[in-house]
């Protein structure tokens, strides 16, 4: 077994672009679910809209990169309004069903043949990231120790990604310690009480939906630029489920929770996915039990199991305060 490769890729996944994209998506979801108590099961749609907004603007319509970024952000805000205006007045579980349905609609539209002239159908779109990589100041690969190395492209997207993460965290931190954040957290506890104190709850929930959607859409850009491609099935429902796992792992309603959650999530998943095929090759795991193609499935089983165990035994997340969670019965 080549432990240096296994450990190398696992360590890389602590800071690489994929981890950043999931962290940004989870920071947005944390605003919805952790702070406001909104059950948004369509977060993947925010990332998808942003990624496709960028890709279509550049690849399909030939407009500049920065306009693409603007279109993507606008798309995320419009999606938040479309989802929120009708549903934020309704019971919490309706928001869950509507958002999950909307996310699926968005994905099906992206992959539909009828719109493939613009979206590329199930193939998705490529050739929109040149504007981004032309700004790349790095020229060579960087190696840290002997185990970890990143090429220039990955370094550039990682640099931008970490700057976005830092900005997002500062935003969330400032917003949540302000009186605005106090209203948001109060809505999570009991909307009716907040209403009875003269706050326009629907308006605040809408602001939260927009803020979290826009923060999440940054993750959409990172994924799209990292792959230099957008594909509809990236933005499926399971993506949102992983974000929930990450938010809960890191501790809901904690500023750094999503980043720490995403790091742990990707480190473990990468490790499992790297170690299992090696172990099967080396004969440590009998092939009647698991062959190399099953290793991927095993990773997902671990994600599901982890999510369940966390919610049962540590609902506050790895670093959260148990007392705080036990205060209410939800």
């Amino acid at each position: 077994m080549s432990w240096d490769i296994i450990i190398g890729v696992s360590l890389e996944s602590l800071i690489n672009a994929t981890m950043i994209a999931y962290a940004l998506a989870a920071i947005g979801l944390n605003v919805h679910f952790g702070y406001t108590g909104l059950l948004n099961f369509g977060q993947s749609a925010f990332l998808g809209i942003a990624a496709y907004g960028l890709a279509m603007t550049v690849a399909t319509f030939g407009l500049p990169f920065w306009i693409g970024i603007g279109v993507g952000l606008l798309g995320a805000v419009i999606l938040a309004l479309l989802l929120g205006i009708p549903t934020l007045r309704l019971r919490a579980d309706y928001l869950a069903i509507v958002t999950i349905a909307a996310a699926e609609i968005v994905r099906l539209l992206f992959r539909s043949v009828s719109l493939s002239k613009w979206t590329g159908g199930s193939d998705g779109l490529q050739a929109f990231s040149d504007g981004f990589y032309s700004m790349n100041p790095y020229s060579g690969a960087v190696e840290i120790g002997t185990l970890i190395s990143f090429d220039a492209r990955e370094l550039w997207i990682m640099t931008v990604g970490w700057v976005l993460v830092a900005i997002s965290l500062v935003f969330v931190f400032l917003a949540m310690r302000s009186p605005w954040g106090r209203v948001i957290k109060a809505i999570r506890e009991d909307e009716d009480a907040v209403r009875s104190l003269g706050k326009n709850v629907v308006s605040y929930k809408m602001q939260s939906l927009i803020l979290g959607g826009v923060l999440g859409s940054l993750g959409g850009y990172v994924i799209a630029l990292r792959n230099a491609a957008v594909q509809p099935d990236t933005y499926g429902t399971e993506f949102t489920f992983y974000m929930y796992t990450i938010v809960i792992l890191g501790g809901a309603a904690r500023v750094f929770g999503p980043v720490i959650g995403s790091m742990i999530f990707w480190f473990l998943l990468t490790f499992i996915n790297a170690v299992l095929p090696e172990a099967i090759d080396a004969g440590y795991i009998p092939t009647w039990f698991m062959d190399k193609t099953d290793a991927g499935a095993f990773g997902y089983i671990c994600v599901g199991l982890g999510l369940i165990l966390l919610l049962i035994f540590r609902p506050q997340g790895i670093f959260g305060d148990k007392k705080e969670v036990m205060l209410d019965g939800r």
Binding site: S178, P179, W180, R182, V183, K185, A186, R188, E189, D190, D192, A193, V194, S196, L197, G198, K199, E324, L327, D328
Partner: peptide
Amino acid sequence: KALSRLSVIDNMRLGATGQKGE
């Protein structure tokens, strides 16, 4: 309807109307 995971003083502050920071 006490807002469980807010401190007592934050519960109180929430009640004030016309807050700029909101």
